[in-house]
């Protein structure tokens, strides 16, 4: 009950299997870094968990009952969906104010107006952009937009936070703010975080446990320190040392 679990997960495009995970279990409150070469299936894993893609088979358990993902309808998935927050590599801002963008998830959940105001203010403060509340979101710079996207995901206080290479196209300044925010949030709220990154030092800085995904499988799974200092499999050794052709 106190964990996120994925079982018998298989995703295929045509007859090519792009992801196959027999069992993966993520503890409550732990920060997981997911690394691996491009096209390894990392994003697919996150998108399946976030119910954006339907697997050929597989089930998901999110701090509760196990749910079969293959037959899950949109409406039936909604309670699961509302436990999760997601930030993609590229933020898509709705053509509305920053405030409206950040409050959207709370409005979907029909929260009280006063509560929404308070929570949005809090989230904007957290990402240090409260002065932009009335600006139109589609006019933000890339870094600002990504921080707003983070605020938009955090404001709903997710139990599981999914981050798909969120800092890949940010400058160092925005990366440092972004990292600080998720660290603070993680520490304060006991949220489980799954973060895909190509930035190995970033994974080292943030993650408590790291997963190496290659060719559609989770190949290695270890505490961050052991993961980087004593990689078990040869593939990971090659990847960490930069010898693997990605």
């Amino acid at each position: 009950m106190n964990r996120v679990e994925v079982r018998n997960l298989q995703v295929s495009y045509g007859n090519k299997t792009v992801l196959a995970v027999e069992h993966a279990s993520f503890e409550r409150g732990r920060f997981y870094g997911i690394v691996g070469p491009s096209g390894a299936g990392k994003s697919t894993l996150l998108r399946v968990i976030n119910l954006l893609e339907k697997p050929a088979s597989g089930s998901l358990q999110l701090f509760g009952d196990e749910t079969d993902l293959t037959s899950l309808s949109y409406s039936k998935g909604l309670p699961l969906q509302r436990k999760m927050g997601f930030v993609a590599q590229k933020p898509s801002m709705f053509h509305a104010s920053v405030y409206e963008n950040v409050s959207l998830g709370l409005r979907y959940r029909k929260r009280e107006k006063a509560e929404i105001q308070m929570l949005v203010q809090e989230a904007l403060d957290l990402v240090e952009l409260s002065h932009l509340a009335d600006q139109r979101a589609n006019t933000l710079s890339g870094g600002e937009a990504q921080r707003i996207a983070l605020a938009r995901a955090l404001v709903i206080k997710p139990k599981l936070l999914l981050l798909d290479e969120p800092t890949a196209s940010l400058d160092p300044y925005n990366i440092s703010i972004f990292e600080r925010v998720i660290q603070t949030f993680h520490r304060q709220t006991n949220t489980t975080v799954l973060m895909i990154t190509h930035n190995l030092p970033q994974a080292r800085r943030l993650a408590q446990t790291c997963l190496f995904v290659n060719k559609g499988r989770i190949v290695e799974w270890a505490d961050t320190d052991a993961f980087f200092n004593r990689p078990a499999c040869i593939e990971l050794q090659d990847f960490v040392s930069g010898r693997m052709i990605c």
């Binding site: 976030n50 909604l78 993609a88 979907y108 709903i156």
Partner: peptide
């Protein structure tokens, strides 16, 4: 992406 964003934010 807009569809995915709205879905991720928990839109019915």
């Amino acid at each position: 992406a807009y569809w995915e964003t709205a879905k991720s934010l928990g839109a019915s």
